[in-house]
């Protein structure tokens, strides 16, 4: 029955203020870029229909969050039920890179995911269109970080020049779908377990 129901994949984009979360989302969903986005307050939301397994489609709900620390207390309302979390930093901003880990931890604390170790994250290093001299985060250090956080997939992107955005979101969709199915399976398992326990109980009583 659950397979007939349309799959909804919930994706959360986190990262410091101004790293390009909104731009990435709009580039992926609408294939557009604008200089005129206002700072996100709370969270913004866009959806995109995607193909999975050839003929099946799923809806990806992308939640673009506010980057300022003050808004983090909001997390719970938006993180819940996420299937994948995207961590974004700005390749020209050291601080935003250093904060990637704390964004991940922040998410795990608030999202209340079933198995934190296996929850899918994807890291995006954005703004690679900017001239080399202004880049402060080397590819190497980014790869090291991704590795240290549990082999998280890493993409270097540019929402402005549309570099690597689609491949990144394809990976995000894949991870989210995987997670979504894992959760569904886990639910099914739980359901079976519940029945088993009851049977066990009856068996016990018989043994007495």
């Amino acid at each position: 029955m659950s397979s007939k129901k349309k799959t909804i994949l919930k994706v959360i984009i986190l990262g410091d203020s101004g790293v390009g979360k909104t731009s990435l989302m709009h580039r992926y969903v609408n294939d557009k870029y604008s200089q005129q986005y206002k700072a996100t307050i709370g969270a913004d939301f866009l959806t995109k229909e995607i193909n999975v397994d050839g003929d099946r489609t799923a809806t990806m709900q992308v939640w673009d969050t506010a980057g300022q620390e003050r808004f983090q207390s909001l997390g719970v309302a938006f993180y819940r039920g996420a299937d994948c979390c995207v961590l974004v930093y700005d390749v020209t901003n050291t601080k935003s890179f250093e904060n990637i880990k704390s964004w991940r931890d922040e998410f795990l604390v608030h999202a209340n995911v079933s198995s934190p170790e296996s929850f899918p994250f994807v890291i995006l290093g954005n703004k690679i269109d900017i001239e080399e001299t202004k880049k402060v985060i080397s590819v190497k250090s980014a790869q090291d970080l991704a590795k240290s956080l549990g082999n998280i997939p890493l993409f270097l992107t540019s929402a402005k020049s549309s570099i690597n955005v689609d491949p990144a979101f394809e990976e995000i969709a894949r991870s989210a779908l995987q997670q979504n199915q894992n959760d569904a399976d886990a639910f099914e398992e739980d359901f079976n377990d519940a029945i088993n326990i009851q049977l066990d109980g009856e068996a016990d009583s018989c043994a007495c």
């Binding site: 206002k38 307050i41 709370g42 969270a43 939301f45 909001l74 309302a77 938006f78």
Partner: peptide, 14 residues
């Protein structure tokens, strides 16, 4: 909170 947080934070200016 999913839609009205911004209403409060920016006094509906957005």
């Amino acid at each position: 909170i999913q839609f009205s947080f911004r209403w409060m934070n920016c006094l509906l200016m957005r």
